[in-house]
Nucleic acid binder design. Structure first.
Length: 818
RNA sequence: GCCCGGGUGGUGAAAUUGGUAGACACGAGGGACUUAAAAUCCCUUGCCCGUAAUAGGGCAUGCCGGUUCGAGUCCGGCCCCGGGCACCA
């Protein structure tokens, strides 16, 4: 018996699938479309990460099963190779990003083909392809026209190492998402996308999509909705007011001072009246220089009182001081707060330090007891005290009553901020906007002129200034105004890489399509096709993108929807992805993979040594796809042994039945087990529990080796096909099939066949297992009782004691309580 | 600090959602085949007591309590590990 030659056989089938276009559905005619989407990788020269391989093959197992179940599965692949991550990598290895893209593209597509996925290769795309970013730019233009792209000067996140601004979502614990450098704040004029317009839709939509709960929670927290009121505080001897946002208007009587954020414009407006102006300006300057980390490290709050001006508490008419302090953020609410030390932890800390009064206005046990002396803020609910006519009112009720009484407006506030789109980098799509001095405004490049090509330049490295490297190339930025024809200047920043990936699932459907031509029509999206395939049926990817890609992709889809370019998702409020599952992460021998540990798994070595089928199965067998897994070289052996047994079984060398002649199993038992296995494997694949599906297949194979059954032979092979597509295809062909196994119908089970006739009745005494006996599946309680009590062992143990109680659980156990 | 996950043999992990804890594998030990090795196959394998015995018994799912005839699963308190958010008023 020749051993299974995976190298040649796997290669043979991959070539045949490609030639036969086995995995290329007809996008315009598919009758049961199933969009099986994988987060496309960004290519580094290191190649695919083993975690990526696990995800890709895991998604493919699901897709192959769906295909066999009769769906037209569309499983496209591409490369997210534009953007700062790829550019940084290119710089690191001393290559031009374009050159690096070409190299890594080749390497990635090789690896991606070797894993044996049923990719729709004809539809592959790369975000740095001008044909692709033509649309990225076109989308920017539409966003601008719809008022969703705008420029503003703001205090923004700046990464000194990457020399570019970053979106809030790309700042992780005060550090740059890409290079872990401390991010600082800079005041710059930048392009933003108005994602805040969609805060409520993004929040509501979460209730209508089937996504991993942890991603939904992360998005809810990020959007950060809170309900409260905006209340004006008058400034004494001034016609100006300070507007604050609070979620606790019920504590208004306890507001003993106010705080403005250092960036608050009122400070300069009131400058004349501030007696300690120099001190205030010094404080503002100092806090601006702090990095995020310094702001956090300096746990102790600081601030300076604006001497010479006072605000009036609208509830009780008292004059209260105004402070400036950097614990109040300019980007949230109105950038100003009323401070209620007794009922807010931060205000309490600040007030304690600067000896400001902290009167209690919410009492937790009114009226039974007096209010406690506080050694920390009380932030819970209670009844009002020291609040004039509101005394005794429950705080929840007083919220809106007090807000109303002082003319406050109900207000819903979101933590979410607008998406900063500009990047001062080279390797990205130039933002297609033109500034004309004469017209004194920004105008988008004409759509028929898109793409604005990224010029091929040698000096692509970040400049370290506020400008992109493209600002050094007059031949790039010098242009004419699309409106007046006069001299004008192009925007030299490029757009955020997350804009590239926010629409790629649409790209797979429209790119290279005759009808999708932005030169000739208003709407390049072929809605017939798009509506056929969207929303995406299954999307699997990393939870690390919860508030990055996964938020942006929803936002952009909603925006395109509202602009009436796409109409696929009326039912889902514009949400583009019906089902999302977050996969787990892979460790090696119990530790996180890292170069310094030297435990990085290079997929190429393993695919070479064991073949794609074995690797796919091992990665699937490790743990459920949605959970973390631990990669161990030892573990692969079990799978290669299993595949060897499969090969031998179908080639007439039933490995172990000779030795197991003592076991006499009849065919019907094998058939029954097969029906059960079909049910289990089908369900397990649906829930991405591939590990238990494979375990069931192993058990079935062992049974098949003991007793033959042609029914089991076929069903087993079909069920194994999604996991091990090559070997099953080869066996299928050897058995005389002309069609691909991957288009064969998924086996069905007969519910009548999975019903057992008997079961092991567990006999417990006081909850402890004491005996077991085979019993008919439908045994009555009466019968089970007498059966159990008649057992010798039970009699001995009871030794005449009468049972107090007997609990019978059908198909499971009987528990005798004494 | 807050919000999510998670903690089960030497290892990766199962457990029909309150009903036989450890399926399926890996590793280890023993055996068969072989001149030998590899490969393959068979047996054993949670811990402890105990037996001539694969008789019997006890303890075990991070820790401490509770509910229940019965708890890995539910409740309360605590300890670790991983991830996310972090002065959001």
């Amino acid at each position: 018996m020749k051993r299974y030659d995976f190298k040649n056989i796997e290669k043979k089938w991959r070539e045949k699938w490609l030639a036969d276009k086995t995995y290329e559905p007809d996008l315009d005619r598919a009758s049961r479309p199933f969009y099986n989407l994988i987060m496309f990788p960004y290519p580094s020269a290191e190649g695919l990460h083993i975690g990526g391989v696990r995800t890709f093959t895991g998604v493919d197992i699901y897709g192959r099963c769906k295909r066999m179940q009769g769906h037209d599965v569309f499983e496209p692949i591409g490369l997210d190779g534009f953007g700062i991550h790829s550019e940084n990598y290119a710089i690191k290895i001393g290559k031009h990003p374009k050159e690096h893209a070409a190299d890594s593209e080749k390497n990635f597509y090789r690896q991606l083909s070797e894993i044996g996925n049923g990719f729709a290769w004809d539809k592959r795309l790369e975000t740095y392809d001008p044909e692709y970013y033509r649309f990225t730019q076109w989308i920017f233009v539409q966003m601008f026209k719809a008022g969703l792209a705008y420029r503003k000067k703001a205090s923004v996140n700046w990464c000194p190492k990457c020399a570019t601004v970053l979106a809030d979502e790309q700042v992780i614990a005060g550090e740059c998402e890409r290079c872990q450098t401390q991010v600082i704040k800079k005041d710059l004029e930048q392009w933003f996308f108005k994602i805040t317009n969609y805060a409520e839709r993004l929040l509501q939509g979460l209730d209508h999509i089937d996504w991993s709960e942890k991603v939904k929670i992360a998005q809810r927290n990020w959007i950060g909705k809170s309900e409260g009121a905006e209340i004006d505080f008058k400034i004494k001897n001034s016609d100006r007011v300070i507007t604050i946002f609070t979620t606790r208007p019920d504590t208004l009587f306890g507001a003993t001072y106010m705080v403005l954020s250092p960036e608050h414009q009122l400070i300069s407006e009131l400058a004349k009246q501030i007696q300690n102006k120099d001190e205030v300006l010094r404080y503002i300057e100092a806090s601006r220089k702090k990095t995020q980390e310094e702001r956090q490290e300096a746990k102790e709050k600081t601030g300076v009182e604006l001497k010479g001006i006072k605000a009036i508490n609208p509830a009780n008419g008292e004059e209260i001081p105004i402070w400036v302090a950097d614990y109040v953020l300019s980007g949230y609410g109105t950038g100003a707060i009323m401070a209620v030390p007794a009922h807010d932890e931060r205000d309490f800390e600040f007030a304690s330090k600067y000896e400001l009064p902290a009167p209690i206005v919410i009492c937790p046990h009114w009226p039974e007891k007096t209010c406690p002396i506080l050694d920390e803020a009380y932030t819970g609910e209670g009844h009002l005290v020291a609040s004039g006519k509101f005394d005794g009112m429950p705080s929840e009720e007083a919220k809106w009553k007090i807000a109303e009484a002082v003319g406050g407006k109900r207000k819903i506030q979101y933590r979410l901020r607008d998406w900063l789109i500009s990047r001062q980098r080279y390797w990205g799509p130039p933002i297609p906007m033109i500034w004309c001095n004469k017209c004194a405004k920004w105008t988008p490049e004409r759509e028929e002129n898109l793409p604005v090509l990224l010029p091929d330049v040698k000096e692509f490295r970040p400049t370290g200034t506020d400008k992109s490297p493209l600002a050094n190339f007059p031949e790039f930025y010098k242009t004419t105004c699309p409106e007046c024809g006069g001299e004008a200047r192009r925007e030299t920043d490029v757009s955020d890489t997350f804009l590239d990936s926010a629409w790629y699932y649409l790209g797979y459907l429209i790119l290279g399509d005759q009808k999708s031509n932005i030169k000739n029509q208003k709407n390049p999206f072929d809605n017939e096709r798009i509506s056929r395939w969207l929303p995406v049926h299954m999307y699997i990817g990393g939870a690390e993108h919860s508030v990055l890609h996964l938020l942006y992709v929803r936002f952009l889809s909603m925006a395109l929807h509202d602009m009436e370019f796409v109409d696929f998702a009326k039912a889902s409020y514009g949400d583009p992805i019906s089902v999302f599952r977050a996969h787990g992460l892979i460790t090696k021998d119990g530790a996180k993979m890292s170069k310094s540990r030297g435990n990085v798994v290079n997929p190429d070595d393993y695919f070479m040594a064991y073949g794609a089928d074995a690797m796919r199965m091992y990665l699937a067998f490790m743990s459920p796809l949605t959970e973390d897994g631990d990669f161990r070289d030892d573990g692969i052996r079990g799978i290669t042994r299993f595949l060897g047994r499969v090969w031998n079984y179908y080639n007439g060398a039933r490995t172990s039945d000779v030795q197991r002649t003592s076991d006499v199993h009849d065919v019907s038992e094998t058939v029954r087990l097969t029906h059960k296995t079909v049910k289990k494997v089908s369900e397990d694949i649906e829930s991405l529990s591939y590990n238990t599906a494979i375990s069931a297949l192993m058990i079935l194979l062992t049974q098949m080796e003991k007793a033959q059954s042609s029914f089991a032979d076929v069903a087993f092979l079909l069920m194994l096909a999604p996991f091990a597509p090559h070997i099953t295809e080869e066996i299928f062909e050897l058995r005389g099939s002309k069609e691909s196994i991957h288009k064969a119908p998924w086996p069905k089970y007969n519910p009548a066949m999975i019903q057992d006739e008997t079961f092991e009745l567990v006999i417990q005494i006081n909850g402890k297992v004491r005996d077991m006996v085979e019993a008919p599946i439908d045994i009555t309680e009466e019968a089970a009782r007498s059966l159990a009590l008649a057992r010798e062992k039970v009699k001995t143990l009871l030794s005449g004691t009468a049972p107090k109680k007997i609990i019978f659980v059908p198909k499971r156990l009987i528990n005798i309580v004494v």
